[in-house]
Design a protein around this nucleic acid. Structure first.
Lengths: 126, 126
DNA sequence: GATTGTCTACGAATTGTTTCGTAAGCAAAC
DNA sequence: GTTTGCTTACGAAACAATTCGTAGACAATC
């Protein structure tokens, strides 16, 4: 299945991934911190996301409780894959260099990445 | 200035970055290899991209010649930055790991990335 | 039991992207 | 000079995302 959330939908998914199951009001309050938005706008968005199966919902209470129905890892993976294909002509390493070039990681992050690379290298040698 | 091409626009930009200045017909012929599309559709898209200043054009000949008016590096950089913010909560290294995890680079690419990392490390030590 | 506040549902307006039909210009071929 | 073929320009239709007003349901409060 292919996951392709819009930017607005991604904002909501990020909140749900972080906070876990939440009502529209709870999500809306987080959104409001960063931008102007009417309550019914957030409601409608989340209803549509539910129709698209991006969100699950529990309607047993008056205030429905929504949960992300797609995993953060899988969603990130698909977005990255699409970007590698569309923007970097299929070259993952080009994306990596671009990401590193503009957002220099600190030493700790560097070590993490290097450890990761070594693992891949080991597998390559096999 | 903020560059935010749509997916269709990116397809055209990719062709122009690769081929250099081209007519609508030339771009269209490349596009057709990968997908169905009418000639006037491509034309209209490129005209709109010109209005948005994504493309330059030379109208001295009957067949106008279009050129990308945004650099590949800058465009890629902005898209990557937006993605790091929207999808990876600001963490470039998380994006890097995700990219490496799903699209294992070959040995040559690995070396390139490692060289890059070492340079960053050197700078960090200063 | 009327009022108030919060919720969902629904539909419509707005905006942006994509697609393409049609007309008009122009030059080469007949 | 008329036909043919390629070009640009224009406008409209189709579609999707976003926004929000309004109505109705429901429960707590007066």
């Amino acid at each position: 299945m292919n996951i392709k959330p819009t930017d607005s939908e991604l904002e909501i998914l990020n909140i749900l991934w972080e906070k876990g199951p939440s009502t529209v009001r709870e999500v809306h309050e987080v959104l409001e911190k960063n931008k102007e938005a009417g309550y019914t706008t957030t409601l409608k968005l989340m209803q549509i996301m539910h129709e698209k199966n991006l969100l699950k919902r529990d309607v047993s209470n008056k205030s429905h409780v929504y949960t992300a129905n797609v995993s953060q890892e899988k969603t990130q993976g698909q977005i990255v894959k699409r970007m590698i294909d569309n923007v970097f002509n299929g070259s993952a390493s080009q994306l990596v260099m671009q990401a590193l070039g503009n957002h220099k990681p600190n030493t700790e992050e560097l070590n993490e990445i290097k450890k990761y690379l070594e693992e891949i290298e080991k597998q390559n040698r096999k």
